[in-house]
Write a protein that binds this DNA or RNA. Structure first.
Lengths: 247, 247
DNA sequence: TGTCAAGAATATTTCGATATTGCGCGCGAT
DNA sequence: ATCGCGCGCAATATCGAAATATTCTTGACA
């Protein structure tokens, strides 16, 4: 419980430009709890489908039901949790159909955003991509402690890399949509390593090729590579998901 | 105040499959207030940029702050209102940049969804499109009472028509994204008639052509027509928005 | 006259408690 | 034995007010 460190989801939170907060960075309790709740879900500390009881959460985050409720409401609006009117909230369960929809949507939208980003990217953007890719390339996928679990560092670096690629798209709405789809996919990716692991896939190589195409301004090729990258991930997850759902 | 009749936004609410509600349709207070709040904003009863004070809203909707807060939180997550941490909420203001982004996003995503819808549409879908188009075609754009204001009936019929077109897209996520973008655009459209009015545009004709292309299964043409339709609307709004922002 | 600080006034955020709702169990009737 | 009914428990939804933050007002001091 508690004191959860930075993780993939934090990356999105960073995006919001911190407005001038004069006194003591007066961030609200709601915001804190929302961020933690979100991180806990995206990082897989809570299983998909789990019921989220108010009593548990108020104790866990040490706040009143109102605050928990607001956090859950926001997550529900994003689709990370689901709300059933008199039955409370639960983490959105995984389903093959949704994964398929999600992948199609991501291929289309993330592809579009990537193309726009490449077309508008300047030198600063290129630098960021190079940096993010370097970090990702040097980070091990398996966590040191438990090799069967995906390492938090890699997940973060992975998230940062893909975000860096998209960062130069000038259309905020589309960019946010792409990021929100990535978050949704994060839930699926979290439960994938045990199966995807023994695949004969060179994920790091895919990233290298993707970064190269983007940096040389070859939007068409980059989009093609991204598409393939996403579909491959889905294929690996598909098997895993089926295993989960039969539990 | 209060007792606001059905309107454009209600259309989206309908989508959510009403789950079996056994006793007295136990809809929650929160849901009611959220729906009304949303309708009030989308229908233009509240000006973009307006500050939304809790005191006003609790009185207006006759409920406690918690309920208002939840509604606002949900709307904020959708982008219809904005939340500034210790300063409350206000209706998202209009801006030319955002309108441009919005239009681009809609052309891309709504176009994509329309294509998928046409490709997957069956006879029931065709019937719905025909019906929705008929209703739209027979509804007058100007309201009887005040000809300078866009009639609520037309707005509703318009919304229903475009929704009907998209309804056969099997990808729920993409479909919802397209609908949510349409809602965002609704805010802009609401403030458009006074300028767009004297344009030499045949909006109903555009709808007729769009419906025809969709029904004959010509996805490419339909998408082209939709693209044009959306861009024309934006062009009309652009002028209007500039006028509003200088107020 | 301008600036700054203290305090009043106003608005938002958070809390704890009450009101509702849904669910399961036991009891009685058929 | 099974079905229907109602009581009580558990969990959520809603309330109203206390706690906190911000803005506005006022008045002293340079």
């Amino acid at each position: 419980m508690g004191e959860v460190a930075d993780d993939a989801s934090a990356a999105r939170t960073e995006m919001q430009p911190a407005r001038h907060r004069s006194p003591l960075a007066a961030i609200t309790r709601t915001e804190q709890v929302y961020t933690q709740l979100r991180a806990d879900i995206l990082s897989g500390r809570v299983l998909p489908g789990t019921k989220l009881r108010f009593a548990d959460l108020t104790e866990r985050y040490d706040c009143s039901t109102s605050v928990v409720r607001e956090g859950l409401t926001r997550l529900a609006e994003q689709g990370l949790v689901q709300s059933e009117p008199q039955h409370g909230f639960h983490v959105t369960p995984l389903s093959q159909d949704d994964l398929d929809d999600l992948t199609t949507a991501r291929c289309e939208i993330e592809g579009l955003v990537l193309r726009m980003s490449i077309e508008h990217g300047n030198i600063a953007w290129e630098s960021d991509v190079v940096a993010a890719h370097h970090a990702l390339d040097r980070t091990s996928m398996e966590s040191a402690a438990d090799p069967v679990v995906m390492s938090d560092e890699w997940t973060l670096a992975h998230s940062r890399f893909h975000q860096a690629l998209l960062a130069a798209c000038p259309n905020q709405r589309l960019r946010n949509m792409a990021l929100s789809l990535r978050d949704a996919a994060e839930l699926y990716r979290r439960w994938s390593l045990p199966i995807g692991h023994d695949d004969d896939r060179d994920v790091q190589g895919e990233h290298r090729a993707l970064a190269a195409a983007a940096l040389r301004g070859d939007a068409a090729e980059a989009v093609r590579l991204l598409d393939e990258h996403l579909r491959r991930t889905t294929r690996a997850l598909g098997t895993r998901e089926r295993a989960l759902s039969t539990q």
